[in-house]
C-alpha cells in the first residue's frame, strides 16, 4: 500500500513539474500574441495586398503609432519610378569621419534612441589597409586623425543580394529600382539575412524602438522608415520615402564635405554616372560577387 502511494506521489510530482515547465516554455507565445492584433496576424504579404487592403493596413499602422508613441504620422506606400535605378558613390578622400550621415540616418529613419542606432557604420581605418576587421566603428575623438581614413558602410543594395536569398519567408526582396526592402510585418526575425550580409548592413530590433513623440519623423513609408516592431530585421533603404519622390537621401544632405554622390544610374547626365565614368570606383568585397550598387573612390 505504501509503495503504491510513493509511486503515485512521484508520478503526480513529475506530471506537475512537466506541466509547469511546458507552460513556462510556451509563455512567450502568449506574450507575443497578446501584443498582436488579429488584423496584423491575418495581414497578407506586402506584394499580395490589394490597393484596398493596403489602405486599411496603412491606416491601421498610423493608428498603432498614435496609440503606442502618441505621434501623428503619415505612412505612405511609395512605389519605384520607371526608368530609375539608384546608385550611390562615396569619396573616401573627402570623408572626414564626422558621423553626420549616421546621425541624420538615426533621425530620419526613426531609430531607437537608446541604442543610438543607425544604418550607417563609419569605420576608422588605417591608411594603406582595407582590413575592415581592424576598423574601429566606435571611435570618439577629434577627426580626421593623421594616418587614418574613414569609411562609412551601409546597405550596398546589391544586385545579387545574398540576404534576400536566405529569407525563409520571402520577407525581403529587391525592388525594381534596385532598393532591397523588408516587409517588417512579414519578417519572422530569424536573422538569417543579417548573417548572410557580407557588409553587416542589417540590424535586428531586439526591443521595440524607444523614441519620443516629438522626435518621430512623421514622413514615413511602409517599406522604409516607419517605426519597426520588436523582433524584426531592418536595413537602409536609400531613404526610399525621400528618393522615390526625387529628393536626396538624408545622409547625403547631412554630409558637410560632399563626399556622397547619389543619383539615377540610367540617366547619362546624372552626377552618379559622371563619377562612375570618371573616377576609379571600386566596390567592397567584390570577390563575393554580390554586385553592390554602392561605389567607393579616392580622389587621386
Amino acid at each position: 500500500m505504501s509503495a503504491l502511494n510513493r509511486r503515485r506521489l512521484l508520478k503526480g510530482a513529475g506530471a506537475t513539474l512537466g506541466a509547469l515547465a511546458f507552460a513556462k516554455a510556451i509563455e512567450p507565445v502568449f506574450e507575443f500574441t497578446s501584443n498582436l492584433s488579429g488584423d496584423e496576424f491575418l495581414q497578407k504579404h506586402y506584394r499580395e495586398l490589394s490597393p484596398d487592403d493596403l489602405r486599411t493596413v496603412l491606416a491601421r499602422l498610423e493608428a498603432e503609432t498614435k496609440e503606442k508613441y502618441g505621434a501623428d504620422v503619415t505612412i505612405r506606400d511609395i512605389r519605384p519610378q520607371d526608368g530609375v535605378q539608384f546608385g550611390y558613390a562615396l569619396n573616401l578622400s573627402t570623408c572626414i569621419g564626422c558621423r553626420r550621415c549616421a546621425e541624420a540616418c538615426h533621425v530620419e529613419n526613426n531609430h531607437d534612441r537608446k541604442t543610438h542606432q543607425s544604418y550607417i557604420r563609419v569605420f576608422e581605418m588605417q591608411q594603406g589597409s582595407f582590413d575592415m576587421e581592424q576598423g574601429d566603428a566606435t571611435y570618439d575623438h577629434p577627426v580626421p586623425q593623421p594616418g587614418r581614413y574613414y569609411m562609412p558602410v551601409q546597405c550596398q543594395q546589391c544586385d545579387n543580394p545574398p540576404c534576400t536569398k536566405v529569407c525563409p519567408v520571402e520577407a525581403t526582396w529587391k525592388e525594381k529600382d534596385g532598393i532591397v526592402v523588408v516587409d517588417y510585418n512579414w519578417c519572422i526575425g530569424c536573422r538569417y539575412c543579417e548573417a548572410a550580409c557580407p557588409y553587416h548592413a542589417r540590424r535586428f530590433n531586439w526591443e521595440a524602438p524607444e523614441i519620443s513623440a516629438e522626435e518621430i519623423n512623421p514622413n514615413q513609408s511602409y517599406l522604409s522608415n516607419r517605426i519597426r516592431p520588436q523582433g524584426v530585421v531592418e536595413k537602409c533603404t536609400f531613404c526610399l520615402h525621400r528618393t522615390r519622390t526625387g529628393a536626396l537621401p538624408a545622409c547625403l544632405e547631412a554630409c558637410p564635405t560632399g563626399a556622397r554622390v547619389f543619383g539615377n544610374l540610367l540617366d547619362p547626365d546624372s552626377e552618379i554616372r559622371w563619377v562612375l565614368e570618371n573616377k576609379r570606383v571600386f566596390v567592397l568585397k567584390e570577390e563575393l560577387g554580390a554586385r553592390p550598387r554602392f561605389f567607393y573612390f579616392f580622389d587621386v
Binding site: G246, A247, L248, E253, C255, G263, W274
Partner: peptide, 24 residues
C-alpha cells in the same frame, strides 16, 4: 568635380524635375 556634383555638400533633389537643389 563641383560642376559634376562630386564635390561639396548639397541639399534638395537628385531629380531636378521633382524639385530644386541647393549647392554649397
Amino acid at each position: 568635380d563641383f560642376q559634376h556634383g562630386a564635390h561639396g555638400g548639397m541639399r534638395g533633389h537628385w531629380d531636378l524635375n521633382a524639385g530644386p537643389r541647393e549647392r554649397n
